[in-house]
Design a protein around this nucleic acid. Structure first.
Length: 844
RNA sequence: GCCGGCGUGGCGAAAUGGCAGACGCAAGGGACUUAAAAUCCCUUUUCGCGAAAGCGGAGUGCGGGUUCGAGUCCCGCCGCCGGCACCA
C-alpha cells in the first residue's frame, strides 16, 4: 500500500495513543494498600500464557490470544472491574543457551535484547498491559522466589493421612529424605549427548529431543525429582471445579492415568521369594497361565536357573542398550525369555512359568504381571508367539474370537464362578486381603517429575552437599545467582557447566554447591502469582494481593481467565497446579487451584494453509501488518478470522477487509476538506436516531455484549459492520450513533475509537466510558414477518402485528392463496405457530 | 489401535430444533474520473424454465432414524486435524 495515501491516518494516531498510554500509566492496576485502590470494585484477573522471548520475535499467532485477552481486559474495565492484565517473560531455557553457545554471547545479553524486542512489538499492538508488573523468570528478584518455593518442596512431605503437603517436621519416620517432595534419586534418565543434558520424558518425542531433534539415550544418573505422584488423586479431583474445556481435562486425567486394581502376591517355587504383581483384573486370577517380570526387575537375578542364565543375561543386555526409539519400533513384535523358574498361583496352587519381557515396564505397578492370555491383548500375542497355554475365565455375553478384555461372567474360577466381573473383582480382592496375600490398589501412569538439568541458563538449586548428603540453604541466602562465566558450554559429560566455576562451587571448607539447574517449567509454574505483587521483597506474593486477585468466593481457581495454546494442556498446567496445591497446603495461598477458566486459542496457519515456520517462509509478523494496515486492523482481523479456539489460515485480503471497515467507521465521523485535511463530517448532527437506526444500534449493543461473554469476537465484529453499513450513508447522521459505536469498538480498535472520540470533542476517553446498555424496547418492531411453511417448505410470507394471537396468525396462514395452492387437495392435519418466527401447515 | 475435535458457497465463516449461507474476502457488472486508485451501488449456493419480475427442484462429508420441522438431536460409516500409544 502506498505510504502517501491511506484511508485514515492510523500511522499518526496509533503511536500517539500508545505513547500516551505508557506515559500516563493508563492501565495500571491498583493493589490492596495502594492509595488509589478501590476495594468496592470487583476484580478480574485475565492472563496470557507468557512468551518465551525468542530471537525471531512475535508472529501473528502469538498475537491472537493476546488480542482476545486485551479486548476482554478493556471490556471489563469499562464494566467497572479492577482488571489485572499483566505480561512477562519465560526467559530461562535451552534455546537462549544454545544460541549463546553458537554466537559466543552471554545468554543474559541476548535475553535482554529479545525481551526489549518483544516488549516493543507488544506495545505496537496497543495492548493494555500493566507494564509496572512486568516480570522475567531470569531476574534474580524473581528466581529468588522460585528457589524459595523449591525450599518449600524440599522441606515438605505428603502426609497420606491428611492427604496434604505438610512440613517435614511432622514426619515421624526414620529417614525424612525418603519422603520429601523434592528428593534425589538415581534414575534411568533421558541423556542427550548433543544437548549435553538430561531431559524429562515430556521433552523427548519419538526417542529424540523436542529441542533440536537429537537422539536420546537412557542412562542412570543422580537427579533431583519432585514428588508430583503424591498429588495424583488431588490433581484429578481438582479438575471438577474448573471451567476448562472438557477435552483438556480429559487429557490431564489420561496423563495421570489412574487405574484401580489389586496387588497379588505369588511365591517363587524354588527359593520362596515373594513376587507382587499388579492387575486391574484380579477376577481373572484363575486364568493366569504364566508370569512376566520386567527385565530390570531385581528378582530376575535371584530366580533365573543356571540353564537359562545365558539367554536371560543376553536379553537383559539387549534391552538395556535399546534407546526409547528402538524400543517403540520393536513394539510390533513381542519378545521375551523364560527364566527357568516357576511361581505358585495363590488361588489354586498352580505352577506357572516365569518369563521376562520388555513389554512389562519396571516403572509401572510392581514391574511384574500375571498373564491371562484370553483376556488381555498383549498377553494373548505373547502366548501365541511362545506357545503358552490359555484358559478362558470370563464368559462374554456373545462369543468372540481371540482375546476378550471386556466384562462378563466368571467361569473356570472356583468360588468366583457365576459372578459378574465387578462382583468377582470385589470377591477375590476381599479373599486376598483376608489371607494377607494381596490387596486392592490404585496405580497411576504419572511419574515423578525429573527436575534437574545439566545446563547453565536456569535457576541454580539452593542446595549444598556436605559429606555426601544434601542440605538446604537458608532463605536468607537467596537468591543463589549463577556465577558469571565466559565458558558455559556443556562439559560433554553429565557434569553440569556450573561445575567449571570452581570458586562458586566451593561453598565452605566442607560443602560444595549443587551444580544442576532447574528446568524451564520452574519459572512458569508460579508467575501468575508474582504478577499479583511483583515488587514484594518479603514474600513471593503478599497475603493481601493474593487474597484479592486470586480470591474467588466459592470457586477453586484464582485467575478468572487464562488463554494460551493447547501445547501446554498437560505439562505446564499440571506442574503449575501441583506447585499451587503444595503452596496452598502449606498455608501460603488462599485458593486450591490457580486457573478457574481456561481457553485454548487455535493455531494460525500461514496463507498457504500450512503451519507457519521460518523454513516454509510463510511467517507473518505483526510488524509487517501494522506497517501497512495499522494495529487496529491487525487486532480486528485476528478476531474476525473465525472462532478463537479454531485453527485458521491467515489472509492479507481479509486484513484489507477489516481495514476498509475501520476506514468506513472513520468516515462516519470525518471527511476531507478542500485541502485534503480530515475534519469532522458535515453530515453529523445532533438529531435523534430513526426507529430503524435505533433498532440496529441497540441490537449491536446487545450482540457485542453477549458475544464478549462467549468470546465470540468474530460475530461481535460482524454486528458492528452491520451497524456501520446502516449509518454510513445516513444524512444527517445522528451524533448519538457514534457515542454508542465508539465505546463498543474501543476494546477491539482502541486507537481509532480514542482518536475519533477526541476529535468529536466528546468528554473523557472512549476507553473510560462505562459500557453501553441496550434498551430492549427499541429492538422490536410493531410488525413482524413470518415465514409460512407447508410441510416444512416456505410457501408464503406473512406480516402481522407483533402481538398477534396464535389463532389470528393461524387464520391468516390458512387463508393465504399460496398456502391453499400448496395444500392442493390434501387435508390440513394441524398448524404449528411459532410466534415471531413461522407457521407450519401440516398436510396429509 | 485408543481418546478427543472438526467436516456448511470459489475462500474465512454465520445460524436458542424454526426462513441455511449473516458479516467479510474473491469474482462479475455499474456509477464517479481524461484515466487510474480510492469510494459508492448492484449481482453472486447450485440446477432447470423464463426476455424479465419471477417460478420450480436440489443442497450443510455419506447412509439411516427421531420430529410438524434437523446444519443443529440419535445410530452407523467416511475423511481431515490433535493427543496418547505395550501403563497390566
Amino acid at each position: 500500500m502506498s505510504t502517501q495515501r491511506r484511508p485514515f491516518p492510523f500511522h499518526e494516531f496509533e503511536p500517539k495513543w500508545q505513547e500516551y498510554w505508557v506515559a500516563t500509566g493508563a492501565f495500571r492496576a491498583a493493589n490492596p494498600g495502594d492509595a488509589d485502590f478501590d476495594g468496592s470494585k470487583p476484580k478480574y484477573y485475565i492472563l496470557d500464557m507468557f512468551p518465551y522471548p525468542s530471537g525471531d520475535g512475535l508472529h501473528v499467532g502469538h498475537v491472537e490470544g493476546y488480542t482476545a485477552t486485551d479486548i476482554l481486559a478493556r471490556f471489563h474495565r469499562m464494566q467497572g472491574f479492577n482488571v489485572l492484565h499483566p505480561m512477562g517473560w519465560d526467559a530461562f531455557g535451552l534455546p537462549a543457551e544454545q544460541y549463546a553457545i553458537k554466537t559466543g554471547q552471554h545468554p543474559r545479553e541476548t535475553t535482554a535484547r529479545n525481551i526489549a524486542n518483544f516488549r516493543s512489538q507488544l506495545q505496537a499492538v496497543g495492548f493494555s498491559y500493566d507494564w509496572d508488573r512486568e516480570v522475567s523468570t531470569t531476574d534474580p528478584g524473581y528466581f529468588k522466589w522460585t528457589q524459595w518455593i523449591f525450599l518449600q518442596l524440599y522441606n515438605a512431605w505428603f502426609n497420606p493421612a491428611t492427604r496434604k503437603a505438610e512440613s517435614i517436621a511432622t514426619y515421624k519416620g526414620a529417614d525424612p529424605d525418603s519422603v520429601r517432595l523434592a528428593y534425589v534419586a538415581e534414575m534411568p534418565v533421558n541423556w542427550c549427548p548433543q544437548l549435553g543434558t538430561v531431559l524429562a520424558n515430556e521433552e523427548v518425542v519419538d526417542g529424540k529431543s523436542e529441542v533440536g531433534g537429537f537422539p536420546v539415550e537412557r542412562r542412570p544418573l543422580r537427579q533431583w525429582m519432585l514428588r508430583i505422584t503424591a498429588f495424583a488423586e488431588r490433581l484429578i479431583e481438582g479438575l471438577d471445579g474448573l471451567d476448562w474445556p472438557e477435552g483438556i481435562k480429559l487429557l490431564q486425567r489420561n496423563w495421570i492415568g489412574r487405574s484401580e486394581g489389586a496387588v497379588v502376591v505369588f511365591r517363587e517355587e524354588a527359593g520362596g521369594a515373594e513376587i507382587e504383581v499388579f492387575t486391574t483384573r484380579p477376577d481373572t486370577l484363575f486364568g493366569a497361565t504364566y508370569m512376566i517380570l520386567s527385565p530390570e526387575h531385581p528378582l530376575v537375578e535371584k530366580i533365573t536357573t543356571d540353564a537359562q542364565r545365558g539367554d536371560i543375561d543376553a536379553y537383559r543386555v539387549a534391552v538395556a542398550s535399546k534407546s526409547d526409539l528402538d524400543r517403540t519400533e520393536l513394539n510390533k513384535e513381542k519378545s521375551g525369555v523364560f527364566t527357568g523358574a516357576y511361581a505358585i498361583n495363590p488361588v489354586n496352587g498352580e505352577r506357572i512359568p516365569i518369563w521376562i519381557a520388555d513389554y512389562v515396564l519396571m516403572g509401572y505397578g510392581t514391574g511384574a504381571i500375571m498373564a491371562v492370555p484370553v483376556h488381555d491383548e498383549r498377553d494373548f500375542e505373547f502366548a501365541q508367539k511362545f506357545g503358552l497355554p490359555v484358559r478362558e475365565v470370563v464368559k462374554p455375553s456373545e462369543a468372540v474370537d481371540g482375546f476378550f478384555s471386556g466384562d462378563g461372567v466368571a467361569v473356570n474360577s472356583g468360588f468366583l464362578d457365576g459372578l459378574s466381573t465387578a462382583e468377582a473383582k470385589r470377591s477375590i480382592t476381599a479373599w486376598l486381603e483376608e489371607r494377607n496375600i494381596g490387596r486392592g490398589m490404585v496405580n497411576y501412569k504419572l511419574r515423578d517429575w525429573l527436575f534437574s538439568r545439566q545446563r547453565y541458563w536456569g535457576e541454580p538449586f539452593p542446595i549444598v552437599w556436605e559429606g555426601g548428603r544434601h542440605r538446604a540453604l537458608s532463605e536468607t541466602e537467596l537468591p543463589v545467582v549463577q556465577p558469571d562465566m565466559d565458558d558455559f558450554k556443556p562439559t560433554g559429560t553429565p557434569e553440569p557447566p556450573l561445575s567449571k566455576a570452581v570458586d562458586w562451587v566451593r561453598y565452605s571448607e566442607r560443602a560444595e554447591r549443587e551444580t544442576n539447574t532447574m528446568p524451564q517449567w520452574a519459572g512458569s509454574c508460579w508467575y501468575y502469582l508474582r504478577f499479583c505483587d511483583p515488587e514484594n521483597g518479603m514474600r513471593f506474593v503478599g497475603e493481601g494481593p493474593d487474597r484479592y486477585w486470586m480470591g474467588r468466593s466459592g470457586q477453586p481457581g484464582g485467575v478468572d481467565l487464562y488463554i494460551g495454546g493447547t501445547e501446554h494442556a498437560v505439562l505446564h498446567l499440571l506442574y503449575a497446579r501441583f506447585w499451587h496445591k503444595v503452596l496452598f497446603d502449606l498455608g501460603h495461598l488462599t485458593t486450591p487451584e490457580p486457573f478457574q477458566r481456561l481457553v485454548n486459542q487455535g493455531m494460525i496457519l500461514g496463507p498457504d494453509g500450512q503451519k507457519m515456520s521460518k523454513s516454509r517462509g510463510n511467517v507473518i509478523t505483526p510488524d509487517a501488518v501494522i506497517e501497512d494496515y495499522g494495529a487496529d486492523s491487525l487486532r480486528l482481523y485476528e478476531m474476525f478470522m473465525g472462532p478463537l479456539e479454531q485453527m485458521k489460515p491467515w489472509s492479507m485480503k481479509g486484513v484489507e477487509g477489516v481495514h476498509r471497515f475501520l476506514a468506513r467507521v472513520w468516515r462516519l465521523a470525518m471527511e476531507e476538506d478542500q485541502e485534503g485535511e480530515w475534519v469532522v463530517s458535515s453530515a453529523l448532527a445532533d438529531v435523534p436516531m430513526t426507529p430503524a437506526q435505533a433498532r440496529v444500534a441497540h441490537a449491536t449493543i446487545k450482540k457485542v455484549t453477549e458475544d464478549m461473554r462467549g468470546l465470540a469476537f468474530n460475530t461481535a465484529i460482524s454486528q458492528m459492520m452491520v451497524f456501520t453499513n446502516e449509518f454510513v450513508n445516513a444524512s444527517p447522521r445522528p451524533l448519538e450513533s457514534l457515542k454508542i459505536l465508539l465505546p463498543l469498538l474501543s476494546p477491539f480498535a482502541p486507537h481509532l475509537a480514542e482518536e475519533l472520540w477526541q476529535r468529536l470533542g466528546f468528554e473523557g476517553a472512549a476507553s473510560s466510558q462505562s459500557w453501553p446498555v441496550h434498551n430492549e424496547s427499541l429492538l422490536v418492531d410493531n410488525e413482524v414477518e413470518l415465514a409460512v411453511q407447508v410441510n416444512g417448505k416456505v410457501r408464503d410470507r406473512l406480516v402481522v402485528a407483533r402481538d398477534a394471537s396464535k389463532e389470528a396468525i393461524e387464520e391468516a396462514a390458512r387463508s393465504s392463496v399460496k398456502v391453499l395452492e400448496a395444500v392442493g387437495g390434501g387435508a390440513i392435519v394441524k398448524v404449528i405457530v411459532v410466534p415471531g418466527k413461522l407457521v407450519n401447515v401440516v398436510v396429509k
